[in-house]
């Protein structure tokens, strides 16, 4: 049962990265879209993420609940030492979620729209940035359980070049995912072209930020290189990611949207796999030691109950979720007006 629970944890993190990520990315794209196209982009974006954005963000809650029920020591250690970036991320989540629904449901569309738009776009950038910072800090051995002064315990646990590079990398990935997703969401040729261009630039940004991650890891002696290339699964995953990238560029020109999305998702999954597999089951790497999912698991009965709840939940959730996505995919062409 422990492995089922860990599997759910990993899957929820991946799905949050993919679905929540594409969602953040939509805001990032809005941030980087020129003024004249922004209105149209917003419309497409709303149609694309409106019905599912709420569900997309549930994966984060599932991951958190799994952590605090099944692996409470890991949850509480991260909560203590990464308090500040987690709090900033939360503020981002609040700002973004509310701004998104406010701008669509405000009965009068006036200057307030500008305010909502600004908040939405900026927090779409901040939130994944800090999500990445939290992830980067968790695995980079910056958390020092023996330090007691404020700076070392609560600031330098996350404030580093490496963490920020991972943060930026996360932002770029989100933008890329969203651009790939949005290509298939619009029928307007001009707009497709624009999203395609966006996907290319986000991809380039991701490669640059990925380079920054390696560089900063190098400078701070974080062995990212050996994590990724240190074992055969990691190497395979990286190769798979690279091949899918090349295919992706090729297919993007052809306009095969479904395969394109699948490939983009696959690529992200491979990246996540390659960085997690090598130090599994250690999910958090400390300055001295690590926090292991296996050693720090909760009581057996708890894991048993948690696993059962998750399995039971997926029986209900997955079919409903697929049907939701499917129905809105199928019918998106039929003209409809969200105000209706």
């Amino acid at each position: 049962m422990l492995y089922i629970v860990i599997g759910f944890l990993w899957t929820s993190i991946l799905l949050y990265l993919l679905l929540g990520g594409a969602d953040f990315g939509a805001g990032i794209i809005e941030l980087f879209t020129g003024k004249k196209d922004r209105q149209q982009t917003r419309k497409t974006l709303y149609k694309a993420i409106g019905p599912i954005w709420e569900a997309n963000h549930m994966w984060l809650i599932i991951a958190i609940v799994i952590l605090f029920v099944g692996f409470p020591v890991i949850y509480s250690t991260m909560s203590i030492y990464l308090h500040i970036p987690l709090t900033i991320m939360l503020l981002g989540i609040v700002a973004r979620g509310t701004a998104f629904s406010f701008r669509n449901y405000d009965a009068i569309k006036d200057d307030m729209q500008m305010v909502y738009n600004r908040i939405f776009a900026i927090s779409s950038f901040i939130t994944p940035l800090f999500l990445g910072i939290v992830a980067g800090s968790a695995v980079s051995g910056q958390i020092d359980l023996s330090s007691h002064d404020f700076l070392n315990a609560y600031i330098f646990s996350w404030f580093s070049w490496f963490s920020f590079s991972v943060g930026l990398f996360t932002v770029a990935i989100c933008g890329f995912l969203a651009a790939v997703y949005l290509i298939g969401e619009t029928k307007i040729k001009e707009e497709q072209k624009q999203f395609r261009k966006m996907a290319v630039s986000m991809n380039i940004a991701a490669v640059i930020c990925g380079g920054l991650v390696f560089l900063s890891a190098r400078l701070s002696n974080i062995p990212v290189y050996t994590w990724i290339f240190g074992n055969s699964i990691g190497i395979t995953a990286v190769i798979a990611a690279t091949i899918s990238l090349i295919l992706l560029w090729y297919l993007m020109m052809q306009g095969k949207t479904i395969i394109l999305r699948f490939l983009a998702g696959f690529q992200i999954a491979m990246i996540l796999l390659s960085v997690t597999i090598n130090h599994y089951p250690n999910i958090v790497i400390l300055k001295t030691g690590h926090l292991s999912l296996v050693e720090l698991r909760g009581h057996d009965k708890t894991i048993e109950a948690l696993g059962t709840a998750l399995l039971l939940g997926s029986v209900f959730i997955l079919p409903a979720l697929f049907y939701l996505i499917y129905s809105f995919q199928k019918r998106k062409d039929s003209s409809y007006n969200p105000d209706h």
Binding site: I61, I62, V65, F68, V69, H299, A305, A309, G313
Partner: peptide, 13 residues
């Protein structure tokens, strides 16, 4: 967490 977490995991569903 591990003791009163059951309702939270069902609540997630």
């Amino acid at each position: 967490g591990p003791i009163f977490g059951m309702p939270f995991s069902l609540e997630g569903t």
